[in-house]
């Protein structure tokens, strides 16, 4: 008779790092394809350069740290970091910007802290935040999203822009992201109604951006359905962001953008499903995840509305990453039969 040697009836299937990462990568595909549709070559160069530099730095660091190169290189964690950065950075980012971003993400935020599993901060967001602080101009120039961007900007123009910084007369195509436009114009004492009327903001904050966010949402829901991530972090993050946005929007809809705009106009969906859920740097207890993610939502709104930068997912994630050890400490789930803890 053959006994089932598995220790637990629920532990079925394969669940190692690379399988998990692979599923996250699959979930990123729809949103990335939409970005490619809207930004064309600019997103493709981002993607290829980011992954290339990430694998290069990962291999160098593994070699320096005398770790086996192949298994770590093939676990897709560096690819995921690179992919997240590629879609977070403006399309047509110059090659050196991507290289320095990946240097910060892979070398400083990941390997100097001890490699995968030991990094207290989300590597992709460290790379993004370091670049946003260092090169605010390059990091906030997004091209205007146009349908089938390949038809407007050819590969040769894109390469010239990315590798030599030469702009062959398509400046007219560059514009501000919805969040950026709202922030700048509110600073000029315009009402939201006027701002919406001036640009093509579509149904709730930038046509293209809303579609891209819905694509991230679709990928994220698929991940929850496949149990790659739990529902706690995305739900709490979106609820936190949406909740505080609703309160202020109800107080003064001319000064504070609607909750839908906040949820679909920036990087909220990408952050909620793909960035905040990083299993290494996020909180691990169920209660802790709710607190951690709600905190990210809250800080995102605060920085977007009253801070100096148009979008804030990266900063909010990094702030809450710092709080994770404390949150985990106070939210240990109750062991059956013991007294109830403070928050668990």
């Amino acid at each position: 008779m053959i006994f089932n040697k598995r220790t637990s009836p629920v532990a079925t299937g394969k669940a190692d790092v690379s399988t998990l990462m692979q599923q996250v990568l699959y979930a990123l595909i729809p949103g990335t394809l939409l970005l490619v549709w809207f930004f064309g070559w600019g997103m493709i160069t981002n993607w290829v350069l980011a992954i290339g530099f990430a694998l290069l730095f990962e291999a160098i660091m593994l070699k320096l740290r005398q770790r086996p190169i192949e298994p770590f290189l093939m676990d897709y964690s560096a690819v995921l970091t690179a992919w997240l950065l590629a879609v977070a950075m403006p399309a047509f980012s110059p090659w050196w910007l991507i290289a320095v971003a990946m240097l910060f993400a892979i070398v400083i935020a990941k390997h100097l802290y001890g490699g995968l599993g030991y990094n207290p901060f989300n590597p992709a967001m460290v790379g993004y935040a370091a670049m946003l602080v260092s090169y605010p101009v390059q990091m906030t120039i997004w091209p205007e999203p146009v349908h089938f961007s390949f038809a407007h900007i050819g590969a040769d123009q894109a390469f010239q822009k990315v590798f030599w910084g030469i702009n062959t007369g398509w400046d007219a195509l560059s514009g501000a992201t919805p969040l950026d436009a709202v922030k700048v114009n509110l600073g000029l004492h315009k009402t939201l109604e006027e701002i919406y009327a001036s640009g093509h903001f579509g149904l709730f904050g930038g046509d293209a951006w809303a579609w891209i966010n819905l694509a991230w949402l679709a990928g994220g829901l698929w991940m929850i359905q496949r149990k790659v991530i739990s529902w706690h972090i995305p739900v709490a993050l979106l609820a936190g962001l949406g909740g505080i946005a609703t309160i202020f929007w109800l107080v003064n809809p001319q000064l504070y953008a609607s909750p839908l705009f906040h949820l679909l106009g920036g990087a909220a969906m990408l952050g909620a499903f793909f960035i905040a859920t990083d299993p290494v740097s996020a909180s691990t207890t169920p209660m802790g995840k709710l607190i951690y993610a709600a905190g990210i939502g809250l800080f995102t709104y605060i920085i977007r509305t009253w801070g100096g930068y148009p979008d804030a997912i990266a900063f909010a994630v990094l702030i809450m990453n710092m709080a994770v050890p404390l949150i985990d400490y106070y939210t240990q789930p109750r062991v059956y039969g013991t007294k109830r803890g403070w928050l668990g």
């Binding site: 320095v100 602080v133 260092s134 090169y135 605010p136 390059q138």
Partner: peptide, 18 residues
């Protein structure tokens, strides 16, 4: 050369000293 602002800010000092 586009200056890297982070190095001139306090975090740059911590990273550099590290």
């Amino acid at each position: 050369y586009k200056g890297m602002l982070l190095a001139a800010l306090p975090p740059g000092a911590f990273i550099g000293l590290g």
